[in-house]
Amino acid sequence: MKKEHVKIANREALIGVGLVIFNFVWWFAFAYGLGSKDPQEYTYVFGLPAWFFYSCVVGFIIMAVLVTIVVKKFFVAIPFDEEVEE
């Protein structure tokens, strides 16, 4: 593998790790931040409890958008078949 290709591959793997950490923090913070109250005190968005709406629905939409942007802007296409070098 050429050096610059290795760099690209490594960077994209790190982006994957970064995204998953962000995804987890968002998911966790809203679910348990808003959801740990007594259900009597819950607020609702579109009929769903707010913790669920922000954590699972908005969280998912944000991830979908983020992944799309990241892939379109930062991922670089490289050839997979290497020329054989001696």
Partner: peptide, 29 residues
């Protein structure tokens, strides 16, 4: 349980990003 299941969204991007291009090139080689 829906909350738990949503942890699977990560698989959609994570698997391909981690194994990614390196796996594609190396397994071809």
């Amino acid at each position: 349980w829906v909350l738990l299941a949503m942890s699977q969204v990560a698989t959609g991007y994570f698997v391909l990003m981690i194994l990614g291009k390196k796996f594609a090139v190396v397994t071809r080689r």
